[in-house]
Design a protein around this nucleic acid. Structure first.
Length: 789
DNA sequence: CCCTGTGTCGTCATT
DNA sequence: CGACACAGGG
């Protein structure tokens, strides 16, 4: 993970042109691409279809600036949307101009501006050690604030409020402005929470994802000097995937390029698939109006796909009303027809995909890494994974639950965040009783109350726990021990090497022993993940002198996954969204069913349906040689079997380039979903989850009860197997409770002690009772066991 | 105070 | 199905 974290180093002083490199850079480009690369004065917009060398053009432009000496590395900033795109772009530029790239800023919007804030945020009254809150942290804070404001979290869900606040921030609507225009239950609740949420973040010295973009705008507005410094510094601003910028990003671009106007953006309106998170397609549609005198270059030649694939893609996007004029063409071969497969179930679909992969791999001599399987939702990966695993086809899944979102990783990171930023309340609450150390919900509530009454932070309340008289001595002691633990390592943050500090801390805090307590596969994996994190920290801190724990935590908050081994021979599984910008010789687009793709929710509004369609377009244009489409008649969703009809998209496509698995041609229904209102209702009931829930509610509870009875005995017998712990004597006066002795219990009768764990109040014993009771885990403090022999 | 079992609920895509 | 909240017993 450390590899991708780049820190600035001084640019080389020499900016002599490198003519050889310039030739190399312009050499492989077509006329249009070359025009885009060399138009270095003034705003440029590159409108480009899929497979047209979009990113290539951008990287060559940057390399061109460097090679000609028009710009020094630190005068360039390039912004992308994913870490992967940034990394690839940097590698490509490096390949072209070598270490002339040092000092160049190239990264995602979020990480670039987090980095900027680290340097400048004290002007806004934050400290540079700010924590970055992810969506879960934000949700937690919002929920707390809602409780405080006595808003009913059943009526209005914290998650909805969080989304609403987030989109307000993305449109640069502040709490005040928001409350004046709020109407409806959700918006009114949001209006109340919004200011409280902002205040809570401020108190915690924390920024959420949206703040990472919003605060720089505020900063630039508030401190024109700072803005001018950066405008001066970055002579050249580049933005990839411009169609996905939201309003804040748009404003930031405008601010940064405000002086030199050397803004170069690349985008394809037909690939805009992030409107749901505030991407504003009008940013690209109105570029020429916003930047008068802009050079617009259209890249319409496709180098990637076969004629057939392109024709199919064309027939998809033609259905959309909103789009810029653009005609894609290619010189590539016609290629094979696109194969459409109808499957009985998602298992059947997965099997057919797997068979096709092995078949093609053998017949065409392809590598596994030449294949990509795409789907609409992450949950769909499961069936595919199972099928591939069964036949030992190597694969990797992109996205899903990423490394940094794993609980065990977030726990360790929370400890570290707390050390750096003790005001970070979300992190404090996360770890204060993990692993359990006797600071339960009640104690925490009392701490919170005290903090509020005294207007101090929660950590300060922890620091002065002895003064909190609502707490029992026992609770005070527990909190005191925790305070000692944290304070000890806080003192070492600046002196001790970070990886060693982390290792000692998680040992000391009991995180490691917590993970090793039960030897399950899951725990072993968690333990390994934590070790991996520590390794990552070591690697990171070794990479540079400026790499502190604080910067590590900020960088890591913005990464979604480990930087995997780049190119092992594996099939790639990912969502359609994640596939943007990538290409593969063979692509499967799966799950083409009404209700799934397009999603049922997206079929009401034309704009949403068009976004789904663009997503389909993105998917099929990833393919170079072979493209497979499939759908399944039956599919498990929400734990229930669902019957589906095939996607309307399949009725829209150009059937002349499609063949079906049976060998026949694709028979399409025209105008299945006419634009008139109640078009699709006849099979709507089939796919609406609420319909199911209502109908199934009747007998579900009964069957569940029966199932749980069995679970009880299962789980207690499992715990007996695992409790091979140390033998701890618990003296109840009448005799020691140790493994082997016979005891009597008020309810369960006579039994035999199997094992004992823990000590003092926390001691527990596993006792085997006769009959159908079996093993029971008993807390000695409550169970009042009497030793009888 | 902590754990376990039981019931509920929602589900998309990302930094 | 799986994540989560909550109640109640240990």
């Amino acid at each position: 993970m450390a590899r991708r974290i780049q820190l600035s180093s001084p640019s080389p002083s020499s900016i002599e042109p490198d003519d050889g490199a310039v030739d190399r850079i312009l050499g492989g480009l077509n006329k249009e691409q070359r025009a885009a690369v060399t138009a270095t004065d003034g705003p440029v917009m590159i409108i480009a279809g899929p497979g047209s060398g979009k990113t290539r053009t951008l990287t060559h432009r940057i390399a061109y600036l460097l090679a000609t000496g028009k710009a020094r590395p630190h005068e360039i900033i390039a912004l992308t949307f994913t870490n992967k795109a940034a990394r690839e772009m940097r590698e490509r530029v490096q390949r072209l101009v070598g270490d002339r790239t040092r000092g160049m800023w190239m990264g995602t919007f979020h990480s670039s501006f987090a980095r900027l804030l680290r340097r400048e945020i004290d002007a806004l009254g934050y400290s540079s050690d700010f924590s970055i809150y992810d969506t879960d942290d934000s949700k937690k804070i919002i929920k707390q604030q809602m409780n405080r404001l006595q808003l009913n979290t059943d009526e209005v869900k914290p998650r909805s409020v969080q989304r609403t606040i987030s989109s307000a921030k993305n449109q640069m609507v502040g709490p005040n402005e928001y409350s004046s225009m709020a109407h409806g239950r959700l918006q009114e609740a949001t209006a109340k929470v919004f200011p409280a949420y902002e205040a809570a973040l401020k108190r915690a010295n924390a920024l959420d994802f949206d703040d990472l973009l919003l605060k720089p705008v505020t900063l630039f507005n508030q401190e024109p000097d700072i803005l001018e410094r950066y405008q001066e510094r970055w002579q050249y601003v580049h933005i990839d995937e411009y169609q996905d910028t939201n309003h804040v990003q748009y404003v930031l671009a405008k601010q940064l390029a405000g002086k030199h106007k050397n803004l170069c953006v690349v985008g394809d309106d037909a690939q805009s698939i992030y409107a749901f998170r505030g991407a504003d397609i009008s940013n690209i549609l109105s570029f020429e109006r916003d930047y008068p005198g802009a050079t617009t270059v259209r890249l319409e030649r496709n180098y990637r796909s076969t004629e057939n694939i392109l024709q199919l893609a064309d027939s998809i996007i033609d259905q959309n009303e909103d789009q810029l004029e653009k005609t894609l063409w290619t010189d590539n071969d016609q290629g094979e027809k696109i194969l459409l497969t109808e499957a009985l179930s998602e298992k059947d679909e997965a099997k057919k995909v797997e068979q096709k992969i092995r078949d093609l791999q053998l017949r065409e001599g392809l590598n596994y890494s030449d294949f990509a399987v795409l789907y609409r939702t992450n949950a769909q990966s499961r069936a595919i994974e199972e099928a591939l695993r069964r036949e030992n086809v190597p694969y990797r899944v992109i996205g899903g639950v990423s490394f940094y979102q794993r609980k065990e990783i977030k726990d360790v990171l929370a400890y570290l965040k707390l050390l750096v930023n003790p005001n970070d309340r979300a992190s404090l609450e996360r770890v204060i009783n993990y692993p359990t150390r006797g600071i339960g919900a009640k104690t925490q509530e009392r701490l919170r109350n005290y903090a509020r009454e005294q207007s101090i932070s929660l950590w300060q309340a922890v620091e002065q726990v002895e003064q909190i008289d609502t707490l029992s001595t026992r609770a005070q002691n527990a909190v005191g021990k925790f305070r000692f633990l944290i304070a000890k390592y806080m003192g070492q943050v600046d002196t001790e090497p970070v990886d060693e500090l982390t290792r000692e801390l998680i040992q000391d805090a009991g995180v490691l022993s917590e993970l090793r307590k039960e030897h399950t596969r899951e725990n072993l994996r968690r333990w390994e993940n934590v070790q991996e994190l520590v390794n990552g920290i070591a690697e990171y801190t070794a990479s540079s002198d400026n790499a502190t724990l604080s910067t590590f935590l900020q960088e890591v908050a913005l990464l979604t996954d480990l930087d995997g081994d780049d190119d092992p021979d594996q099939v790639t599984l990912m969502t359609l969204h994640a596939s943007k910008g990538l290409e593969y010789p063979v692509v499967f687009v799966t799950g083409l069913e009404e209700g799934l793709f397009p999603l049922a929710k997206a079929t009401q509004e034309r704009t949403e349906l068009e976004e789904e369609r663009r997503l389909f377009y993105v998917g099929v244009t990833r393919a170079e040689q072979w493209l497979f489409l499939s759908w399944a008649r039956n599919r498990y969703r929400y734990g229930k079997q669902e019957h589906n009809t095939r996607s309307r998209f399949l009725d829209e496509i150009d059937s002349s380039v499609v063949s079906t698995a049976g060998g026949g041609r694709l028979r399409q229904k025209k105008n299945r979903f006419s634009s008139s209102s109640s078009g699709g209702t006849d099979n709507y009931d089939d796919m609406d989850p609420h319909y199911y829930r209502q109908n199934l509610r009747g007998n579900s509870s009964k069957s569940k009860k029966r199932r749980t009875t069995r679970t009880v005995s299962n789980s207690s017998s499992r715990s007996s197997k695992n409790s091979s712990g140390r033998r701890v004597v618990y003296d109840e006066g009448e005799g020691a409770i140790v493994p082997g002795v016979r005891v009597e219990h008020g309810k369960f009768g006579e039994g035999k002690v199997q094992s004992v764990e823990g000590s003092g109040d926390r001691a527990t014993a596993v006792v085997f009772f006769g009959g159908d009771i079996g093993n029971k885990k008993l807390k000695l403090k409550y169970a009042r066991l009497r030793v009888i022999g």
